[in-house]
């Protein structure tokens, strides 16, 4: 009877790396002949709202076959129709119609190309979300041997050059006895933290900018447009920092996700922050109503920026390293005070 793998002594030399395809985590532990299958215990369900939120933030793979089928049928019919038209035109020697058809098809090709590109980028975004999920899973497990390869992949995707000092520092800190969770934690604290710093600067800049613009501009419509413009720009810049390419749709989707997320998740956070927020609003209110409005918008932009950051990061925030709104709020108030109080 031997339940556990026993000691083995080797004569071969020790290798530092192993082939990643061999799964080392699988262990044959017990005799299958006397297999005992314990009854599955239903785990208490997580709060439904949390799960819904997850789905809003990270869209699940839905029933894609329906959409694909419809699209395929539609494009098939269109193709058939156009070939038919062209044939008709050639047969009846209607050169004008033929030229029109050619012109329209060039337009259509351009449009299709654009849509394809967008879809491709959307795929990239979905892939990014799956990276986030994977890193979450790795952080929770106590596995060994997958963390380094995973982080290297993430770094490659995020456009981090191997020579960058933070990446180098992370690589040098590694030790074969580190577990995956530890490797990811170190990657998060050393490499991603650098990106976070840059991203925080961007958020601060855009938030103060939009706060200042709103504080100065007298028109409500201009306010809204300005905010929308600055917010889009901010999300774009953030995506660049984390090395994710966003298309128009994905950006919009992220924007929408972020808005919905803000509405849902922000409610609880707002309750916590409300005290502090109200205080700075109050402080600003004394300066002037417009400055107050500006600060309000600035804070919202900053909140959006922070949410976008948490969606764009390759790993979830660790609680003590998460960027706090309070850090940005102070700068917004300072900037607006600078502009309005002369």
């Amino acid at each position: 009877m031997s339940e556990f793998k026993s000691k083995q002594i080797f004569d071969q030399p020790l290798q530092a790396e192993h082939e990643p395809q061999v799964e080392l985590t699988a262990q044959v532990q017990f005799e299958t002949s006397e297999k005992f299958v314990p009854a599955a215990i239903a785990e208490p369900q997580e709060q439904a709202s949390e799960q819904q939120l997850e789905q809003v933030i990270r869209p699940r793979k839905g029933r894609k076959w329906l959409a694909t089928g419809l699209l395929a049928t539609f494009s098939g019919l269109v193709a058939w129709q156009s070939i038919d038209t062209v044939l008709q035109a050639i047969l009846s020697a209607d050169w004008l119609a033929l030229s029109w058809a050619g012109f329209v098809s060039v337009l259509a090709a351009l449009g299709l190309g654009a849509i394809g590109k967008e879809l491709w980028k959307l795929r990239g975004l979905r892939n990014h979300f799956s990276v986030q999920e994977q890193s979450e899973a790795l952080l929770k497990s106590d596995s060994v041997g997958q963390g380094k390869a995973f982080c290297q992949k993430v770094a490659k995707q995020g456009g981090i050059v191997p020579e960058s000092p933070s990446y180098d520092r992370w690589l040098n800190g590694l030790n074969p006895s580190h577990s995956d969770a530890e490797i990811l934690e170190m990657y998060d604290a050393i490499v991603v933290a650098e990106q976070d710093k840059l991203a925080t600067q961007i958020v601060t800049r855009h938030a103060t900018e939009s706060a200042a613009l709103v504080a100065i501009s007298p028109l409500a419509v201009a306010d809204m447009l300005l905010v929308a413009w600055r917010n889009f720009k901010m999300i774009d810049n953030l995506a660049q920092v984390y090395g994710i390419e966003l298309g128009y749709w994905s950006r919009l989707k992220l924007f929408k996700c972020t808005l919905v997320n803000m509405a849902a998740a922000g409610a609880s956070e707002m309750a916590i922050d409300a005290g502090m927020d109200l205080m700075s609003m109050d402080l600003a209110g004394k300066l002037s109503a417009r400055a107050g409005q500006g600060i309000g918008v600035g804070i919202l932009t900053a909140r959006l920026g922070i949410k976008a950051m948490s969606l764009l990061r390759p790993m979830p925030w660790s609680p003590d390293r998460a960027v706090k709104l309070s850090a940005i709020r102070k700068q917004i108030a300072l900037k607006v005070a600078e502009l309005t109080v002369k």
Binding site: Q8, Q12, L14, Q15, A16, E19, V22, L24, P176, S177
Partner: peptide, 16 residues
Amino acid sequence: QTGYIANGEQSIPAIQ
């Protein structure tokens, strides 16, 4: 020191 031993197709974790 930790590492792996190549044993045919498999690589077995080992210490030295």
